[in-house]
Simulated scan of single mutants.
Amino acid sequence: MEKLGIGIVIREMQSTDNEKVAMLIRKVLVELGVPKVGTAYADTSLDQLFQNYQQPKAAFFVVEEQERIVGCAGIAQLENYKGNVCELQKMYFLEEARERGLGAKLIHICHTCALDFGYEYIYLETLPYMKAAQKLYLKTDFKYLQEPMGDTGHYSCSVWMLKSIRSLVTD
């Protein structure tokens, strides 16, 4: 667990968080007008995230403010890809938690975790109109790709980015 200020912590997800995290993700996706198919909204794992991250080289984190979950993200092996690449997955924040530096901090924690797990690269997928997210990813050393890696099933996400673990910025 990492305390970020008064009443704000980033911690590993617990099984009791499943329903709250699924509701947060769906709320953000609906708010942003994301298609319900071909995105995280349709993932069958969404209601059982804790259980799905109980595998080697995977972790999922939540951001809590005043004991309320306001953001989340995880990493796991990139599906259907043979290289030593993890995917930054399901990174979403409620509107009141955005543009406060919490996203950059959560990405840093995920990167550190990926480094500890021995991954070489972190991959992500997003949507073209999620410009604020792309700005954050670029600021944290992700670079655009011309085509997707692996097969996540998120065919509606047409922006792909990759970051070398070696470019991890240390505090």
Rank of each mutant, 00 (worst) to 15 (best):
H111F: 13
L94K: 05
T16F: 15
Q51D: 15
A58G: 03
N80R: 12
R98T: 11
E87H: 11
C72K: 01
I109S: 15
K163S: 04
T39S: 14
V159F: 00
V159S: 05
E65W: 02
F93R: 00
I25L: 09
L78A: 08
E147G: 08
D151G: 03
G150F: 01
T44W: 13
E120T: 11
C86P: 09
F60R: 00
T140P: 01
G38W: 14
V63M: 05
K105G: 03
V63N: 03
K90P: 13
T44G: 15
G38E: 03
V34N: 14
T44M: 14
T16A: 13
L4H: 05
K131I: 14
S45T: 15
Y123H: 11
I107T: 06
Q51R: 09
Q146L: 06
K131N: 03
L124W: 02
G7T: 10
D17E: 12
K36G: 10
W160A: 00
K135L: 08
F60H: 01
V70C: 11
A58W: 04
L94V: 07
G83P: 06
G153N: 02
E87Q: 13
G71S: 11
T152G: 02
W160G: 03
R98A: 03
Q66F: 08
M91S: 06
R11N: 07
K135W: 08
V70Y: 01
F142C: 01
L102H: 01
A58E: 09
A58C: 08
L46F: 02
D43Y: 02
V9Q: 10
A132I: 08
E87N: 04
I109F: 11
A132S: 13
M149E: 04
H111S: 15
D141R: 12
G150H: 04
V85R: 09
S15K: 11
A59P: 03
A97R: 03
L145P: 02
T44F: 13
R26W: 00
E87M: 11
P56T: 05
A40K: 07
T152Y: 05
G33W: 07
F50C: 12
L78N: 07
K163C: 15
K135C: 04
V62S: 06
V37G: 06
V85W: 01
N18T: 00
V159R: 06
A73F: 03
E64K: 02
K82C: 14
G150A: 05
F60I: 01
Q146N: 12
L106G: 07
A132H: 14
K36Q: 08
E67N: 08
M149S: 02
L4Q: 08
L115Q: 15
G71I: 04
P128K: 15
Y123I: 13
A42I: 11
Y41H: 15
G103N: 05
K3M: 12
F117K: 06
A97V: 02
N84H: 06
A104Q: 14
V63T: 09
D171W: 15
R68V: 05
Q51C: 08
L136Y: 03
V30P: 02
V62W: 00
V28E: 06
E64N: 00
K135N: 13
Y119Q: 07
Q48P: 02
K20L: 12
